[in-house]
Design a protein around this nucleic acid. Structure first.
Lengths: 162, 162
DNA sequence: TTGTGTGCAAAAGCTTTGCATGTTG
DNA sequence: CAACATGCAAAGCTTTTGCACACAA
């Protein structure tokens, strides 16, 4: 239920691996095969996912990992900015890979769950201005627009979500 | 750990009550004392709160209610726009009363948990433009800026909220 | 009186934790 | 070989659900 583009980008994954490796080295973390397996699995995915879905998917992979390791590794990947963390109104944390994708925000259809990404430079302006005005050092942000997608959405309905 | 203003606004509460009443009537919902008690409790509060905190607080009130009723009523109040729902990065749903406050967004300090509110008209422009471009009917949004508050923050620490 | 709403407690879903075992550096 | 990471299962939290009872309309 996502607007996606393309599959596994080997180059991107390789660069992400380097970043992850460097991060682990400079933080004295162990470069375990589990951690790399999780990174790879994430880079095979296209869109948003949650920890449980990733765990389930990992079970079918060459290198199985436990739930605890999935959660642990997701945290590391967030810390080194290889993935971004979201909460689209529900109590499930969603992730998406962020390296190699330009900064973007989300438009979520409340009827069918579709997530569309968009960019707008005005966000950056707002961040700069508000950071200065309110004396904050702003590190990141989330802008989520909620609504109903006209057109395609009705077709997707009928399978009664919500 | 919030930037707040003032306490119980009788007038505002009374108007909110009317809106809630009208909502319940037009949806054939029962106007129970529990529902009004929850609305009142919310309008006594100044800032953001979660369901559990509200429930705990209600226990000391004249009209006790159960957790289930709290959750049920919060949903109704969101539906009629008397309160707004947020998730500031954690897996707890936070609410705040929204009637009588002008539309605003949030700046969250990752160190001390402080939440500052701000307004920026550019958000509205983005909503309008993106809705049109992507063929969505946008109903609401959340813009959360995360960062560290310079100055006041260090002083505020030590009492460890979060 | 009728059926919606409530209370209570149990269940469910996501995430974290504890501990024994494995493995990296 | 010592410390950190993993796996597993149990525990923790927030939220939802089921069922009997209460009460608004």
């Amino acid at each position: 239920m996502e607007v996606s583009v393309g599959g596994f980008n080997e180059q991107l994954f390789s660069e992400a691996q380097d970043i992850f490796t460097e991060y682990m080295e400079s933080n004295n973390l162990r470069k375990t095969p589990e951690r790399f397996a999780i990174l790879e699995e994430i880079y095979k995915r296209t869109d948003h996912f949650d920890a449980e879905a990733l765990f389930i998917h990992m079970k079918t992979q060459e290198y199985r990992v436990s739930r605890a390791t999935v959660y642990n590794t997701l945290e590391l990947l967030v810390a080194c900015d290889l993935i971004a963390k979201h909460q689209f109104g529900k109590n499930v944390t969603q992730y998406e890979k962020s390296y190699g994708s330009k900064q973007h925000d989300h438009l979520i259809c409340e009827d069918c769950g579709k997530v569309v990404e968009f960019c707008d430079p005005r966000i950056q302006q707002i961040k700069n201005m508000m950071g200065e005005m309110l004396n904050f050092e702003i590190t990141h942000h989330n802008l989520d627009l909620y609504g109903k997608c006209k057109g395609a959405c009705e077709k997707t309905r009928g399978t009664s979500d919500n």
